[in-house]
């Protein structure tokens, strides 16, 4: 894909997808930051640490986003401290909080839906297929 086409794609995706997509994504001009300032004591993580982690994760954060991420990650880490307050003396290490076991069914062939039944409620069809609007360009 040419650079210009790729740039259009980045621009078009910026408003829709989550920002954990691949490659650098433009920051606050395209994606207004919605998290306000958070009051609190000393942060659990510094802005420099967040900047470093964002570079390692190949995420391009704007100044405002860096600020917001520092606040949000700080709050998450503060929450983790809450868990540390629970007395776990005499409790065995565990992978789950409750007892669980897998549920299996018999591996047996059973009749499925007939093609006509599966297509019965389709708004549009093309013989044996569903007909849907074009996703990429003109049909």
């Amino acid at each position: 894909m040419g650079l210009l086409a790729a740039a259009y794609e980045v621009m078009n995706n910026a408003g829709q997808s989550d920002r954990t997509g691949s490659g650098p994504i433009p920051g606050d001009v395209l994606r207004p930051n919605d998290s306000g300032p958070v009051m609190g004591g000393e942060m659990k993580i510094t802005r420099d640490e967040v900047e470093k982690v964002s570079l390692l994760a190949r995420l391009l954060l704007s100044e405002r986003e860096l600020e917001a991420m520092t606040q949000q990650l700080g709050r998450i880490l503060e929450y983790m401290d809450l868990l540390g307050e629970v007395n776990t003396e005499g409790v065995e290490p565990m992978a789950h909080a409750i007892e669980v076991s897998n549920v299996f069914r018999q591996d047996r062939v059973e009749p499925g839906l007939a093609r006509e039944e599966a297509l019965a409620n389709a708004p549009h069809r093309d013989e044996e297929c569903y007909l849907v609007p074009a996703v990429l360009g003109e049909p």
Binding site: L4, A7, V10, M11, G23, P24, I25, V29
Partner: peptide, 17 residues
């Protein structure tokens, strides 16, 4: 990648490229 990100911002700002 960086140029692409920059270009996307120019396009979003209304530039014709």
């Amino acid at each position: 990648d960086a140029t692409q990100a920059g270009l996307a911002r120019l396009l979003a700002g209304g530039a014709t490229v």
